[in-house]
Write a protein that binds this DNA or RNA. Sequence first.
DNA 1: TCTGGGGTCCTAGGACCC
DNA 2: TCTGGGGTCCTAGGACCC
Length: 401
Amino acid sequence: MDRIIFHIDVNNAFLSWTAIDLLKRGYKYDIRNSYAVIGGDEKARSGIVLAKSMPAKKLGIYTSETLYSARKKCKVLKVYQPNYKFYSEMSKKLFELLKNYSPDIEIASIDECYMDYGKVKNIYGDPIEFAYKLKKEIKDILGFTVNIGIANNKLCAKMASDFSKPDKVHTLFETEIKEKMYPLKIDDLFGIGKKTAPKFHSLGIHTIGDLANSNIEYLSKQFKNQALVYINMAKGIDNNPVISEESIPDSISNETTLNRDINNKLELYQYLLALSESVGIRIRKQKKYASVIAVILKDRYFKRRTHQKKLINPTNITSEIYEISKEVFDEMWECEPIRLIGIRLDGLMDNLYFQTSLFEDGNIRDEQEQIEAVIDDLKEKYGYKIIKKAGLIENKIRHKE
DNA sequence: TCTGGGGTCCTAGGACCC
DNA sequence: TCTGGGGTCCTAGGACCC
């Protein structure tokens, strides 16, 4: 039986949602119709475009471009700060609305998801008609537009929702792949980024159709096992199911760009402490334990390095995360000035089997965990500012939720 | 006042064991 | 005293996505 999959994608999510937020607060005009972008904070050295309005896009402004460069393209450009809390509320509302129609929703990111329509087709009828209805309902109730791609698998649904924007429904059924997808540039294929696309061009493969029809042996020389994966993608073959379960993350990370390059060890330790705190809160919320702790550094030349340590006893205790991250940091840091520092908790597990060493008292560990649980609760109730570990610097690290 | 942050997946190489 | 290979675990880095 043929599957029918929807890919639902919010148009200019951050910008649209900020527009709605501003209108609610009495803003007199809709920034979606003006030269506007959502951007980072230049003073904090995070000044890049996160989302742009259609008029800004028409001037050639693109996501991830520096605000400095965007302003050169548009003298009257308005820059708005992101409001992640509001975004996450809007995102939740969208997915709740969709779940009224089908429980088979796979959340792909804050502003996009897949829906397995095949299972509810008997109830709602023709997928295209339904998609138009759905799109209108989202616009009427939530106030923003979406694109909906309809296809026989997730990859094609995703490609279809990207065809032309905004506020559109597109199909890319198996029978339409040659006509609608083969003529597109190889760069437009989902999964081909700015490193891989040039490699294909240099092999004379310029369109998705070129890739679909190319010789596997020839491609294998350069791409090894990935060659077949790429060819299948180009042919629009994808058997991945829509997975509706709330997914538990494989890793939890926090990183922060420092407001200036720092090469003072004690100062960098302060950031490690703050980061340990914020990833610690998040992992405890998941009721998980990390078996790997990694430290991420970026130097002034934007070169990233990671170094990690595998733990015999997985942990979710802030003080342990901090101590281990310091060790890892000491092993890797070559006294160079640091632009960005981060911590990643990896190898997350439910765990609960600890190898208590002869010298470690298991009870102390339990007590520590209980203390942190109480602190987390208090913070949730009264805000993060109420309790601070000694030495934790003010407001440097954003706590995610 | 020039270049974010949070993820996932894949690969390659080294260590180690049989 | 000539030369294995397979499997697994671990680490670092790269590519990609939103």
